[in-house]
């Protein structure tokens, strides 16, 4: 078994989400999460607050420098993710397709390094 990061990205150009409209998406994601748990593929998952809530810390120098905002200025940012267990890439891609349908967004799949 290997672990994969399934990540979903948002854009600063996305309109502010309307809670009533988002409700079916939340429910679909919850159903997907339940399925991951039921099939033993679940490791962790979570949605992130918008990128405005990000703070960056750099302690490579003598002291930690704290800055407001993301590490990379970009239109796209990480919106949420799952960490799953899967036998191989095809199994991970299959979960990603289901996740993409549930959260109504593209899903990037990346393998974790082993050990």
């Amino acid at each position: 078994m290997a672990q994969y990061l399934l990540s979903v990205h948002g854009s600063v150009d996305d309109p502010a989400p309307d809670m009533a409209e988002m409700q079916p998406v939340f429910e679909a994601v919850e159903r997907f999460n339940d399925k991951l748990r039921a099939e033993g593929a679940w490791v962790f998952a979570g949605g992130l607050h918008p990128i405005e809530a990000a703070t960056t810390v750099d302690a490579q120098g003598d002291r930690a420098v704290v800055t407001d905002g993301p590490y990379v200025e970009s239109k796209e940012f990480l919106g949420g993710f799952w960490i799953i267990e899967a036998a191989d890439l095809d199994a991970a891609l299959d979960w990603a397709a289901q996740g993409s349908r549930a959260c109504a967004g593209a899903v990037e799949v990346r393998p974790f390094q082993e050990d």
Binding site: A2, L89, A91, A92
Partner: peptide, 14 residues
């Protein structure tokens, strides 16, 4: 190797 691309013939439906 890293992503574990499987070494097999895909399932019939794929």
């Amino acid at each position: 190797k890293a992503a574990k691309v499987p070494y097999r013939v895909p399932r019939a439906e794929d």
